[in-house]
Design a protein around this nucleic acid. Structure first.
Length: 639
RNA sequence: GGCGGCGUAGCUCAGCUGGCUAGAGCACACGGUUCAUACCCGUGAUGUCGGUGGUUCGAGUCCACCCGCCGCUACCA
């Protein structure tokens, strides 16, 4: 019986634009896990890829005057190389939802579920945004308009296929309860449980009027809708239906990394799909946080997206990987700043690790004529490093099995720091002055070489070039093959080293726009941040505030706190739904003047289109409508 | 509004089922060292463990309420 292949996935990314460092973060993390398991001797199947269907891609392609396929081919090519290439991403399969086998898998899943009665054809009724060609549920609308583009929507009924998720609700809850590790971190688990307990609706999984997608079998008017298509990629990539032998070894996924914004799809819809197919569920779905730029969300529209390729060019692959894996707490949101990267580069990579190699090889050169001495019986001071190395061997393993990548690296650094301290404690330069202490000196040099060799093994899942560089300087030519090489004692003595260039030349942190590591930095930073909280006068002018008069007011039936108001704004009467029922009697409001936010996106509240909002101040339990202190004509601009 | 989480040194955070003088990394200061990439090693915190009250022989660790922040959700707009 062969051991199960260790299967890890990243989300498949949407190639409508170039990816940024947030995507790199997830993918590098998955890569480190994959490399670690390979090093442990396990068969690994590491999959990443792209989610290529959908309206937006099709639209973008037409704008550029190419076919959707040509459009995505180009971007996907870029993602594979140079993007993932430059970060050393060692995926075993790059899946594209436009791959032939994926189409086949999605269609057979559809047919399969149809035959079982888990898919039925019904009518989808919702609000449709014509320009976006997108359906929205009432609750998603923003002031009755499309939440994406703000344009009005219309009520449309459309034939659609539905996936009977509701049928699996209880089983899903039970599965989460029975498998505490299924959703991680646990905060996400609680959220999903409360979401499930609120009740599941069947999921509409097809659309008509879309051309760029996988067709519903025997009903080519319909195209299978995004999530159903996208989530199936994890099955396709494992060889479901097309490579049965592989699938038997690979399935189910051991770890699926996802961003926190898509945890719900991966921990509810996705497992229910698998339940319906009678397939085992993934063992762990890990919802990590976002990598923020400073303290704001990264996005293309904000123009603050960081290009990972540029970073690797400036600092090298390993510095970027190290930063992502070490600095960002896996789970919570992390914050990216280039200053932090540079600081970490100097402190951890140059000072602690690079300098350790540099000073160790220098001493082997000088005191040992370039040859690692054979060890002699250890004195008490020499036993610490081997013991620590053995302990850390276990600790790293343990941390990695819990996906605590940053902690694993932290453990390796305990060993690196201990080696630096050991040099200080033993002061080899003093031992070298006394011929009677030659054996002690030999042991020190040996321990340093051996510790560095162990470090090169331990670091190899995380860093690409550095382990090789360390080994070359230690005189080793073969790359790391197995985690067991991290067991202390492989050097016999007699190996000739080859001193080389510094691993990570220190950066001058004072130069350029990057702050120096002293007091000026926080000051500068806080100034920037407070500035970020200002809006310009132009920003404010975007808000159109007008005086209006309430002409009618009534409670919204079935709502505890909503009033439906009819407000005259000088041009027309508009309906505004406001959550002030607890504070105002509808009767007393008629005739009251208010300040209206006139250009707010309409939104549907409790089935009523609310076209604007009225200003009110609140403090704790108190709430009071804001009104001009004397009567003004309706429509008067407030500014 | 509901559910959940968080609030511990200047910064980022550890502190499990309550128990000796509350920890780590970074930053900062001082001292040491010279093999090394102006590096490394050591020493240093008066931290009201968000606030108040309670349970207990004893609470950062449990309970209640309050304040602040965050996530999900909802009839927020």
């Amino acid at each position: 019986m062969t051991e199960k292949t260790w299967y890890v996935t990243t989300p498949i990314y949407y190639p409508s634009d170039n990816l940024h460092i947030g995507h790199a973060y997830t993918t590098v993390a998955a890569d480190a896990l994959a490399r670690f398991h390979r090093l442990k001797g396990e068969e690994v199947w590491f999959v990443t890829g792209t989610d290529e269907h959908g309206q937006k891609i099709s639209q973008k392609a037409h704008e550029t005057g190419v076919s959707p396929k040509e459009f995505v081919d180009k971007i996907v090519g870029f993602i594979q190389n140079p993007l993932w290439q430059s970060l050393g991403i060692s995926y075993d399969r790059f899946i594209r939802t436009t791959d032939w086998d994926h189409k086949r898998v999605v269609q057979s899943i559809f047919e399969n579920l149809w035959e079982r009665g888990d898919i039925y054809k019904g009518e989808y009724e919702g609000w449709y945004c014509l320009p976006d060609e997108t359906f929205w549920t009432e609750s998603k609308l923003v002031d009755g308009n499309c939440p994406d583009c703000g344009r009005p929507v219309e009520r449309v009924k459309q034939a659609s296929y539905f996936f009977k998720m509701s049928r699996y609700q209880d089983r899903m809850i039970q599965h989460i309860l029975d498998h505490p590790d299924f959703i991680q971190p646990s905060s996400r688990r609680n959220e999903m449980l409360s979401f499930l307990e609120a009740g599941l609706e069947d999921l509409s999984i097809s659309r008509t009027g879309l051309d760029w997608g996988i067709e519903v079998p025997n009903d080519p008017e319909h195209v299978i809708y995004v999530w159903f298509d996208a989530l199936s990629n994890y099955l396709t990539a494992a060889g479901y239906l097309t490579e049965p032998e592989r699938f038997a070894r690979v399935w189910p996924p051991d770890v699926q990394l996802v961003g926190k914004e898509i945890v719900r799809f991966h921990t509810i819809i996705w497992p229910i799909m698998l339940m319906a197919l009678d397939l085992p569920l993934p063992r762990r779905v890990f919802g990590h946080g976002w990598l923020l730029i400073g303290d704001t969300k990264m996005s293309k529209s904000r123009g603050n997206a960081v290009d990972p390729i540029a970073l690797t060019k400036t600092y090298g692959v390993d510095a970027v990987r190290y930063y992502l894996l070490r600095e960002v707490p896996f789970g919570a949101d992390g914050s990216y700043t280039e200053d932090a990267l540079r600081l970490l580069f100097n402190v951890d990579l140059a000072n602690d690790l690079g300098n350790l190699l540099s000073r160790s090889t220098a001493m082997i050169d000088r005191f040992g004529q370039g040859v690692i001495p054979g060890p002699h019986p250890f004195g008490p001071l020499d036993r610490h490093l081997p013991q620590l190395a053995a302990e850390i061997y276990e600790q790293v393993d343990q941390a990695m099995s819990q996906l605590l990548i940053s902690d694993a690296i932290g453990q390796i650094y305990r060993l690196i720091r201990a080696a630096n301290k050991y040099i200080e404690d033993r002061a080899p330069w003093n031992l070298a002055k006394d011929p009677a202490r030659q054996e002690e000196l030999d042991n020190v040099l040996y321990n340093l070489a051996e510790t560095l060799r162990v470090v090169s093994v331990l670091l190899s899942p995380f860093l690409i070039e550095t382990p090789e560089k360390i080994r070359r300087q230690l005189g080793m030519d073969q790359p790391v093959q197995s985690y067991r090489e991290a067991i202390y004692g492989a050097f016999q003595g007699g190996e000739r080293i080859r001193r080389g260039e510094p691993l990570f030349p220190r950066l001058d942190l004072r130069e350029g726009a990057t702050a120096e590591p002293g007091a000026p930095e926080p000051a500068q930073k806080s100034a920037d941040m407070s500035q970020a909280n200002y809006i310009s006068l132009d920003d404010f002018k975007k808000v159109e505030l007008k005086v209006g008069t309430i002409r009618q007011a009534e409670a919204v039936k079935g709502a505890d706190r909503l009033l439906k108001l009819t407000v005259f704004d000088g041009e027309r009467e508009r309906t505004v739904v406001s959550g002030i029922k607890a504070h105002y009697d509808p009767q007393t409001l008629v005739g009251q003047q208010v300040v209206l936010v006139a250009n707010l996106k309409p939104v549907l509240l409790r089935g009523i289109l609310s076209e604007g909002m009225l200003l009110a101040g609140s403090a704790g339990q108190q709430l009071s409508i804001v009104a001009p202190s004397s009567r003004l004509p309706e429509g008067a601009r407030v500014k």
